[in-house]
Design a protein around this nucleic acid. Structure first.
Lengths: 123, 123
DNA sequence: ACAATATGGGAAAAATTTGTCCCTATGCAA
DNA sequence: TTGCATAGGGACAAATTTTTCCCATATTGT
């Protein structure tokens, strides 16, 4: 695990939520777990763009931040299930608000994002 | 400006909002601009941890994503003002929801974040 | 025997983001 | 004339995040 050289700022609510939600796939992990996709392999199938390694790392962090719990069944081949904690569930409406805004403006968003990319890339 | 080698995924609303909000200070920039802090120097004073350079870069991106507009007054010394577009204003309630959750659970958040840090750092 | 399943972590490389340093411009104040 | 305020960008360095590759476990099916 990478050890930060620069400490995070934890002043306001935005800093704090940022600290637990920042990470390429964390929001989606919470979302899919909430939808009932509990096993690591299911989550990996849901998020094929993510590397397996990173999903594991972010699941560990979510767990350390007490947003999810992990149950390991002592069977072979191994079976693992993640679930939201109550704390994690309290985040779902917030994530829903993010997704809703993104859905509502998806056309416009796609346009401005792609336009900027073209500008930077040079078409 | 850095040119991505790996294209972003723009599948769902969460991808899309992530694309425009990701960046260390973007959310705070939107927030402070909404509160009436329009000039770059004001914003820099509000966010002293951020480097001047990065604030400029992120303001540029917010502008390219049409969340803010920039007015340059042709005076000396230069004067610049940023404002939220209507599109940008529509994001404010979403950001408020994030901040609200962070405020509501700030004690618990501070605890779990610091505990994890100690674990990683080794006290 | 060998491959497939399911889960997870170490090590190092690659990608990306953020910070630092320096340079530009102009008018005003000490 | 030197220094401050205001604003912004290039070049490069440092920090951080993410990916890739490989190894390990133990059972079931071929």
């Amino acid at each position: 695990m990478y050890e930060r050289k620069i400490p995070p700022s934890l002043n306001c609510g935005l800093d704090l939520i940022g600290e637990v939600l920042y990470g390429k796939w964390k929001i989606r992990l919470l979302w899919f777990i909430n939808e009932g996709n509990k096993r690591p392999s299911e989550l990996q199938r849901k998020i094929p763009d993510a590397s397996r390694r990173l999903l594991n790392m972010q699941l560990n962090e979510l767990q350390e931040h007490e947003l999810i719990t992990k149950v390991i069944y002592p069977v072979v081949p191994p079976k693992v299930e993640y679930s939201l904690t109550e704390f994690g569930k309290s985040l779902i409406p917030v994530i829903a608000a993010l997704g809703q805004w993104g859905d509502e403006y998806q056309e416009r968003l796609r346009t401005v994002i792609l336009e900027r990319l073209e500008q930077v890339t040079g078409q």
